[in-house]
């Protein structure tokens, strides 16, 4: 021990610390959406009827499908970490790729949903939308912002997972050092949790 040179920098690894940092960051993300939920609650309180009317135009089928997609992707992510803990690299890699593909599926669904809304003339600033009562304009304003911001988070999450896939292939993530994968998982689950709240608030309040 004492032959170790003092000048050698101690490689101090603290996985709990790494996860703690991630959790703190996620709480910050939670309050980022929290601000939007505050707005939603106030506007909904002030325009209850308009919100109900506007929500009836939503495609509940696509919304439910996307909920199931995200829930299942959360499952595959959790399984990917468990597989890595058990040292099953191939299984973990497969599950990560499946998670990524679920992300793609979610976005494709979203694309069709938004395209339908735009074709119906419900895009921001459109003559049809601006002619509607103010509560409905606000509903659509919140819908596009909250769902859009969530979509951005899905894309960020997929980018992170893409990096994790690369790290797994290169062996940077392995049985003894998988905290990166855990943190990517935490981020992905947060995206899922946000959707768990967005889903009833926009699709199921008719």
């Amino acid at each position: 021990m004492s032959t170790e040179n003092q000048a050698v920098i101690h490689v101090h690894r603290d996985d709990v610390g790494a996860r703690m940092g991630m959790w703190l960051f996620l709480l910050s993300e939670f309050l980022l959406f929290g601000g939007l939920f505050l707005m939603y609650s106030v506007y909904r309180y002030n325009h209850q009827h308009d919100f109900h009317v506007a929500a009836e135009g939503m495609n509940v089928f696509l919304g439910t499908a996307n909920t199931l997609i995200l829930l299942t992707s959360s499952l595959t992510m959790a399984l990917a970490i468990a597989a890595m803990q058990k040292g099953n690299k191939i299984l973990s890699l497969t599950l990560q790729i499946i998670t990524f593909l679920f992300g793609v599926a979610f976005l494709v669904n979203k694309f069709f949903e938004w395209r339908a809304e735009f074709r119906a003339g419900n895009y921001p600033g459109s003559p049809i939308l601006t002619a509607k009562p103010s509560g409905q304009i606000l509903y659509y304003g919140l819908y596009y912002t909250m769902v859009g911001l969530h979509g951005v988070h899905v894309i960020v999450g997929m980018t992170i997972i893409a990096f994790m896939i690369r790290f797994t292939i290169k062996g940077i993530i392995n049985k003894d050092n998988y905290v990166k994968l855990e943190n990517a998982g935490l981020y992905w689950h947060l995206v899922d949790i946000i959707w768990i709240f967005l889903f009833p608030l926009f699709y199921l309040i008719t």
């Binding site: 921001p124 606000l138 304003g141 919140l142 912002t145």
Partner: peptide, 10 residues
């Protein structure tokens, strides 16, 4: 997008 602007109901 209508969020805060009073002309859009905000």
């Amino acid at each position: 997008v209508g969020l805060f602007d009073p002309t859009l109901g905000g």
